[in-house]
Design a binder for these strands. Sequence first.
DNA 1: AGTAAATTAATTGTGTACAACTTAATTTTT
DNA 2: AAAAATTAAGTTGTACACAATTAATTTACT
Lengths: 148, 148
Amino acid sequence: MAKANELLKLDNQLCFQLYSASRLMTKLYQPLLKPLDLTYPQYLVMLVLWEEQMGHKFTVTNLGQRLKLDSGTLTPLLKRLESKHLIKRQRSSEDERQVWIRLAPLGDSLKSQAKRVPEKLLCETGIKEQDLNTTRELLKSLFDKADF
Amino acid sequence: MAKANELLKLDNQLCFQLYSASRLMTKLYQPLLKPLDLTYPQYLVMLVLWEEQMGHKFTVTNLGQRLKLDSGTLTPLLKRLESKHLIKRQRSSEDERQVWIRLAPLGDSLKSQAKRVPEKLLCETGIKEQDLNTTRELLKSLFDKADF
DNA sequence: AGTAAATTAATTGTGTACAACTTAATTTTT
DNA sequence: AAAAATTAAGTTGTACACAATTAATTTACT
């Protein structure tokens, strides 16, 4: 059937556009994150932490819900951030199952440098902020609409 | 500056929407690909091969350009597809640097099952084909426009 | 209270991604 | 033709992702 063949073509699949756009985006961020010594997923974790005041505590589960990542990904990533002295990991004494994650002073001070990253990205890629917002909204609504 | 703080918020970043949408998409495909015993990136490689007649030969570089993946990713992935007898890898005799990749009979026969995957995905997620097309076009134009 | 069920991180194993490098083969220069 | 540059695929090392499992703890329930 012609229809199924068309659907099967790589370029016609949203999945592939998303997949390659996402990886491209990571590559675009890389040179901007290198001075901060952060990988892209590490940067995302820091973004979440930076949204709150310095003393704010997150559990690993909190971060996971926000970023849609599980402990299998987060635990080693957070250990790497800790070894760079950007965050502190501390097992909760109230509930020994939980581990509190919070900004360390070095991680907090990194925020001012990070603030320049989004505008630099727009600038360097020549992406119009309007186009970017449109795409972002469309993606968000598409995935909010579907029930998963 | 308020503007920079807003830009820094996770939800305002297209990068994060792309990143999580892409991973979500992978997860949605997973149950559909499991019967085919394919991972999502393996499925993408197969899509490229299925676009051509059975005898068509691709080099690793060809596939890499199409999928925007390098040999460091493709070589082990292709070896896994070969071990499942879905493709054949054969070093070219004309140019010994190259390796020809082509569908094996089993890989070719898998195409008929794979044809159902895209429609099943739309069906199971309730995503409207129209919304999907709009997003796909917007993403494509956004990334074609930027010069990278 | 005491046990079952649920929750939280961590661990294990597989499979990408990709930078940087290596090796071998081919092409271009000189 | 020999040297230099380029190209193709593979290798190595690091860092995700994530399914499945485990271990420790807490909560719920009888």
